[in-house]
Design a binder for these strands. Structure first.
Lengths: 212, 212
DNA sequence: TAGGGATATGACCATGTGGTCACATAGCTT
DNA sequence: AAGCTATGTGACCACATGGTCATATCCCTA
């Protein structure tokens, strides 16, 4: 957690530091990211930085926490409504929300992408500590739920499907990030919808040709 | 490419250097990996290293080339036979071969995993240069082929499916790597087969419950 | 045994890192 | 205006990095 001095800062300055850090950590990964660069970007002295944050790790965990909060907040409304939906609608919603998030907060999305690549174990575990594995549990629950409702064939292996869904959302996020990245590219809403529907179609109907 | 001096080295020494480098690059990523550490591991002086290799990049590209060769060689026989197989058999073969490779050459598999995370653009592009995108093209060809044979429903979006397959193989590799890692854990053959079959079952039949 | 080309070596260089600390400055209180 | 506390600052530290180079060592030929 940052020191009080950091929170006493005028909002502008605080935000500049935050966005500089987000920028750096979304491009470089924990070890390679540089405190010096963050200081330069946000026009503060090295000494000042260490009056705001205990550590490089302190900063990193704080930044990741902000990103996670933002994402949770973004999804919370969607999750609330989703109880009434069918599995396919639920999953479609998650997909589209994910894409929307990546477009609305490309920096945070890039940060998440970078985190998924992180090699530094101490940085990784410091961030995880709590609130991870959410997506895995979420998927398993959704799947079991849909099975009891009879929406999903009971012969489907829940664990395998959960893993498939996870890897798929990860891949889609990555794909979208590459496409829109940091630039404010205006994507074709229809294209995205069609692509998502193609994936869902495969997932639900399988790829086997049943006509012969 | 390494200098002649490197290839003039006695085989033992050469192999030690190679394995030290593989070890380092499979744990750390291009920027974080350390030449000093590689020298220490392989008991050579820094100066000697730079008599064998022009650069850090020179080493990296050479090591990656070795790994790629090994993998291509490993898959080549499988690919040859696969023309006579159905799509599901082809894909099953690729899956199992991938798992087998990860188990037989965990270091190389880890190297590949690390490469897929690589942030350094120059290192990435130096390695790619040729022979990449193979898997994507391979998948698309397999899919189109299976469509004309009537094995796959023509309403399936080839690009979406290709992406799905790619992310899936990536996820499985990652999963297997985490499970067996560097230790020679003897996995249960049946477990692996069952898991792969579960994934393929989902892929081919879809998850929709057709019984009502 | 003398000489010479190839190879081995580690001190050294410039640069960058995360982190510290003595000091300067600002702003509030008496 | 004096004093005091909270904040700002950049030179500095020890360390690690990729890369160089003068020198020492080896081994083969004459």
């Amino acid at each position: 957690m940052p020191q009080d001095t950091f929170f006493n800062l005028p909002e502008d300055k605080r935000n500049l530091i935050i966005s500089s850090a987000v920028d750096e950590f979304s491009k470089a990964g924990y070890n390679t990211a540089s405190i010096n660069q963050i200081c330069k970007k946000s026009n503060i002295a090295k000494g000042s930085f260490y009056q705001y944050f205990k550590d490089k790790l302190d900063l990193y965990v704080y930044i990741m926490t902000l990103a996670i909060k933002e994402k949770v907040n973004f999804f919370s409304t969607a999750i609330e409504e989703s109880h009434n939906l069918t599995f396919i609608e639920q999953f479609r919603l998650l997909f589209l929300k994910g894409i929307e998030f990546a477009k609305k907060h490309p920096q945070y999305a890039a940060l998440g992408e970078q985190f998924s690549k992180e090699n530094d174990e101490s940085a990784k575990s410091a961030v995880i500590k709590e609130g991870d594995k959410q997506s895995e549990v979420l998927f398993i629950q959704m799947i079991e739920n849909a099975k009891t409702k009879g929406e999903i064939d009971s012969s489907v292996d829940s664990l395998a499907l959960s893993m498939l869904l996870q890897s798929l959302t990860g891949a889609v996020n990555k794909y979208m990030l590459n496409k829109f990245g940091n630039i404010g590219y205006e994507y074709n809403e229809d294209d995205v919808n069609n692509f998502v529907d193609s994936l869902l179609h495969i997932l639900f109907n399988g790829i086997r040709n049943n006509s012969n």
